[in-house]
Design a protein around this nucleic acid. Structure first.
Lengths: 116, 116
DNA sequence: TATTTCGCTTTCCTTTAGGAAATAGCTATA
DNA sequence: TATAGCTATTTCCTAAAGGAAAGCGAAATA
């Protein structure tokens, strides 16, 4: 008879969740995707739409989101050159996560409020 | 005619998403909830079920999850005293987020694999 | 011509997350 | 009695995230 109960396997769920977290981790990535998704396409627009977001952080996050093929950087070669950002189709696959998190956050606020 | 197009409002989504992130942020919290959810209830079991998780971090995260009423710490006063952890009912509300992230992670792996 | 705006980049700094290792108090087992 | 296991805690450290502020080149505006 074995002394120790072996732990329950959970890696089949833990691993993919962690893979996801590696892409959308941090304080800002989802917010940026949401902002671009609702129509903000210029650097300054995105920055202004998200309180507290500094240009340095926005610049860095946009690059990472580009690398993950979630956001596209578009340079129009007309005169004058303009830079804009839009969502890649792949970003749409994040919609269920974003909605689940939005719903949870709204419900959580309500819960916190009731407890006071 | 105004020169500047005003940015699009996105705070109605951005804010609750950020509220959610404040609760489940970091590398480990969701993994710990998953692990406890599948039946790991002892400190060491949880730790062993999640590769790379150190006792210090587990200890800290468990406290935070307790404060957010997602995990319950149970002390059995029998002899010998045992400590175990289980999910609070409130943790079940995270299920949609966890499944959405699991699905996304699995799909993302597939996508990355195809591209190589 | 001077000033402002845009889309960043750079520098500097602080805070936080997280890892490694040792340890402690208790119980269990040999 | 000695050793091992459980549930952490503590200390020390590094790396990464993130914030504040300045600046820069090109273009637009006054």
């Amino acid at each position: 008879m074995p002394k120790k109960k072996p732990y329950c396997e959970c890696l089949n769920t833990v691993k993919p969740v962690r893979d996801t977290l590696e892409v959308i981790n941090g304080k800002w990535k989802l917010s940026i995707i949401i902002s671009v998704g609702v129509g903000n396409s210029r650097f300054t627009e995105i920055q202004e739409s998200i309180p507290g977001l500094t240009p340095k952080v926005l610049s860095k996050e946009l690059k990472e989101l580009e690398q993950h093929q979630l956001i596209k950087r578009i340079i129009t070669n007309d005169y004058p050159v303009k830079i804009s950002y839009c969502l890649e189709p792949y970003a749409d696959t994040l919609t269920p996560i974003i909605y689940a998190m939005k719903d949870w956050g709204l419900n959580h606020k309500k819960k916190i409020f009731q407890e006071r």
